[in-house]
Write a protein that binds this DNA or RNA. Structure first.
Ligand SMILES: [Mn+2]
Ligand SMILES: [Mn+2]
Ligand SMILES: [Zn+2]
Ligand SMILES: [Zn+2]
Lengths: 145, 145
DNA sequence: TTTCATATTTGTAATCATTACAGATTAATA
DNA sequence: TATTAATCTGTAATGATTACAAATATGAAA
């Protein structure tokens, strides 16, 4: 338990979300595992501690979190949604081989664009990401050669 | 038929892809409909002209096109893959309301990053997109008020 | 042309993530 | 305590995509 439970509870109550046990566990998991996990990763980890946990609850909870800007949904893989509690503006790197998503902190001039217009369209979110082969996979390949 | 068939045929033969009737029709559709269509949109349009067309063929063909860099797969909606034959570097705007994807031509310094390293990861693709409400939907909302 | 091998297309079934829904459980309120 | 609302749970349905095998078309040798 890396993250303080009181902070997590406050994060929910501040947004008028009832801090139920399931919600606290899911949010705690997200804060302690900043690897952009899938619903399955979250569920499979928590079901050990909470055997009654339902996958539907994970989906429902993440939907509430997303609507309240507690998590960001990342849909760059094309297969499943990944979840991110890092709400600071940042980019991502998706490894085509191992499917890991890394944070890339390149400071952009986001503030210039966000909530403004771009060709008449109202911008609410800015997403940027790179695809390729990650450092670790590159090194694994080297060893094979 | 806006695009010249000879050009389309050459595009395939240049990459050693047999220019079958189905493949030509799909590629022609993509060139004439630069709206980032879904598999369903492509299939439903083409099945009128080619009643034997199979949706699996659309999937197979787009996979071959993607592997040969004839189309780009866009996975920003989270629900289904959209396809783009505009291979010049450009950004996208996804409208949360009507789900239309618009091209946004902001010149980036892509060439500085592509095929180079970023924190040790090998970058092969750069993606950037915005989410919000598009011009047309904003205007439709105005009328309602 | 006929024969045979190969590539492509097609239709159906399977898979997998996500959503819909209704009943069970829990919490809040009177 | 009794009543009501919110939350959670399990299962069924949905929808996009993939797997697979049979049907069809293509193309080269004989
Ligand atoms: Mn992140
Ligand atoms: Mn485009
Ligand atoms: Zn990797
Ligand atoms: Zn719109």
């Amino acid at each position: 338990m890396i993250t303080n439970m009181k902070h997590i509870k406050k994060e929910l109550t501040d947004k008028n979300i009832k801090p139920t046990y399931q919600r606290l566990c899911i949010l705690e998991y997200l804060h302690d595992n900043l690897v952009h996990p899938t619903v399955d990763m979250i569920y499979n980890k928590l079901v050990d501690r909470i055997p009654t946990m339902s996958k539907t609850t994970v989906y429902n909870t993440l939907k509430i979190f997303s609507e309240n800007n507690i998590v960001n949904e990342i849909t760059i893989t094309g297969t499943e949604t990944r979840y991110d509690t890092n709400c600071k503006s940042h980019q991502h790197f998706l490894c085509k081989k191992c499917k890991k998503i890394y944070d890339i902190n390149i400071t952009y001039q986001d503030s210039e664009i966000i909530n403004k217009d771009i060709f008449g369209h109202k911008v609410q979110e800015i997403h940027g990401y790179f695809k390729g082969i990650c450092k670790q996979c590159l090194e694994n390949d080297k060893i094979k050669d």
